[in-house]
Design a binder for these strands. Structure first.
Lengths: 135, 135
DNA sequence: CTCCTGGTTCAAGCGCACTTGAGGTCAAGG
DNA sequence: CCTTGACCTCAAGTGCGCTTGAACCAGGAG
């Protein structure tokens, strides 16, 4: 089975068919080949969607993800791709660090037993919440 | 200056005053003390908001964050806090791993030079997009 | 005293990422 | 033949996380 109907694909990626149609409508998925009017997807689409979901959870908007995924060899888009990817890398790094701090803070606070995340001693002045906002 | 007006606080955390009023309205920030009708915040609020923003970026909804932050010593809420925090830890772990994979994928793809993230050889079958969805 | 800045409330509006509903097509099964 | 079910399109609706607008107030500068 190298081809998937929209229902099957949706099941595999844990989304609803409507979401996949929506992705197509906003250009995030290429317009799928139709057989008797119905969308038929190559299995590789599963991976593409997994990639989309990952990027999305990392805070990219669908428009940004589309920009990252659509290059089709054009010089202009390629430059854009590089710029976007490069600009996003430090953002991702910062994000990963912060998420790790949050994770550790939650874990430490559970261990500490104070049961009040906000007032927890482990989150004191030098803790994760102390970073200066830019701007 | 151990007290902040809403404008100053907003500036420090990089948000708009309207967002802070909104947070108060949904119980994410305690109702601030008023002086001549105006909200006055202790500087510690900066940290609380930083915490909120971090959790938010990690995919928590504001309702979940409120649940994590509001415990006020009550046994029931404390049990809920522990349950929520414990259920969120593995989620955060998975999330961090995935974000790291995405980061590496973007970096590798930039290095590889193919300029097509989707088709990039570095993202092949055993790559980040291969995880099974939980059905 | 008047104006300006920056605050107040409340209701309505907005953008994103979908979902839902109405109305229709098609193929297989009883 | 009729039903069932999965799919189609298109428009409208939903929920979250704010933002905006209208109408009002309070304190300080000129």
């Amino acid at each position: 089975m190298r081809q998937l109907g929209i229902g099957e694909l949706a099941r595999r990626v844990g989304m609803r068919p409507s979401a996949l149609r929506y992705y197509e409508s906003v250009g995030l998925l290429p317009s799928a080949e139709r057989t008797a009017g119905r969308r038929v997807y190559p299995v590789a689409t599963v991976r593409r969607i997994a990639l989309i979901k990952m990027a999305q959870r990392a805070g990219f908007t669908l428009a940004e993800i589309r920009a990252l995924l659509d290059t089709d060899g054009d010089r202009g888009t390629t430059r854009q791709w590089r710029a976007l990817a490069e600009s996003k890398l430090p953002e991702l790094d910062r994000f990963i660090r912060q998420t790790q701090m949050l994770r550790d803070a939650v874990a430490d606070c559970l261990a500490c037993g104070c049961m009040n995340f906000d007032k927890c001693g482990l989150l004191a002045e030098d803790g994760p919440g102390t970073a200066q906002p830019r701007g």
